[in-house]
């Protein structure tokens, strides 16, 4: 805590913006986010949009996994539910894709609720296996939905009032608005009674029940809210991509999302997820796209295609073993070190 800042009320202690650095961060961050399309174009703007899509999904998983401690290996399948909802509504009913995004969230939330049913009876590994089975079963049904691999979301359904939301600047601002609303909601959720109930269930469910928390309801809500976030992310993904296929929502994506949460900081819903997505999605994609031509040039294209597995796997395992609180804890230590520097104690 910086010197010279005094908090006299509980309200001030609970505020989102407590220190001057928070205000500075807000002004800088909001400024950057709002003006990004001015200096990011084409590929990089797409990267920013993908970052937000995966951020929403990771925040959802962080609520289920980080806050409530419920393991879900089916998060990518829930994203798929959102994406296919948008695609099918657009394709079969001509429904507007942008307006279908809330419906995508609701569909995935419903699926999330169904996924929560095993958690009433099961814990730990058994729950992980239930979600693993759900992931594969949903993948199977998605492959039935689109036997010719890809569903193209009709372009004309991506338009509202003449503005095409399928790409570029309009999509960026749409995604930004949705992301901001959902992040604010998630940040507040973590501090609300529900969020605390989730943490209590995570840390000790018996004790949580004894102090009067409805464990079943909390678990169901954790899965449902996590599913809603995944569904919205999937809906945005359907809007963003030209065609969606079940390959976009495989177990690998689920594990990538799990990695984002575990590496970023489980339980730190907003900032932890953001760090995780920044490293595993944006960071990795850019590293890959700059390294791959090099590796292919050296005749090592097999490494270029497997490096993702190796790096992702190693990062996840190393972080879990050595730094279970994730990057956010590393960041905190760096911050502490700098704050005390050069008098380290």
């Amino acid at each position: 805590m910086p010197a010279g800042v005094f908090k006299e009320t509980y309200r001030a202690d609970m505020a989102h913006l407590r220190y001057p650095i928070h205000w500075a961060g807000l002004v800088l961050g909001a400024g950057l986010a709002l003006t990004a399309p001015l200096f990011l174009r084409g590929y990089y703007l797409d990267q920013a949009i993908l970052f937000m899509i995966f951020l929403i999904a990771a925040v959802g998983l962080n609520i289920t996994l980080g806050l409530a401690g419920l393991i879900s290996l089916a998060h990518a399948a829930l994203m798929g539910a959102g994406a296919y909802t948008v695609a099918m509504l657009a394709l079969k009913a001509g429904f507007n894709s942008v307006l279908a995004i809330p419906l995508a969230g609701i569909t995935a939330a419903g699926l999330g609720f169904i996924l929560s049913l095993p958690s009433f009876k099961l814990k730990g590994y058994y729950l992980a296996m239930a979600s693993l089975a759900a992931q594969f079963i949903l993948e199977y049904f998605y492959s039935l939905l689109a036997p010719e691999q890809y569903i193209t979301v009709p372009f004309e359904t991506k338009e509202i009032a003449g503005i095409f939301f399928g790409e570029g600047v309009p999509l960026y601002y749409l995604a930004l608005a949705i992301t901001l609303v959902l992040l604010l909601a998630a940040g507040n959720l973590a501090r609300s009674s529900l969020g605390r109930a989730m943490k209590a269930v995570r840390d000790n469910d018996v004790a949580a029940e004894i102090v009067g928390i409805n464990v079943t309801r909390t678990k169901a809500l954790a899965f449902t809210i996590g599913g809603f976030y995944a569904g919205v992310a999937g809906g945005l993904y359907a809007l963003y991509s030209a065609g969606i296929g079940w390959e976009g929502f495989t177990l690998l994506v689920s594990i990538e999302l799990l990695g984002m949460v575990l590496i970023g900081g489980p339980g730190r819903v907003v900032w932890g997820s953001m760090l995780g997505v920044l490293v595993l999605k944006t960071g990795w994609t850019n590293l890959e796209s700059s390294l791959n031509p090099l590796l292919t040039g050296m005749g090592l294209d097999i490494i270029a295609s497997t490096a993702k597995y190796i790096v992702l796997g190693t990062l996840i395992a190393v972080f879990i073993i050595l730094e279970p609180e994730g990057l956010i804890a590393v960041l905190r230590r760096v911050k502490e070190y700098l704050r005390l520097w050069p008098y380290s104690y």
């Binding site: 690998l252 990695g259 490096a307 993702k308 597995y309 190796i310 796997g313 395992a317």
Partner: peptide, 8 residues
């Protein structure tokens, strides 16, 4: 994580 490492 190890799964994906060894798979790679």
């Amino acid at each position: 994580g190890i799964y994906y490492l060894i798979k790679g």
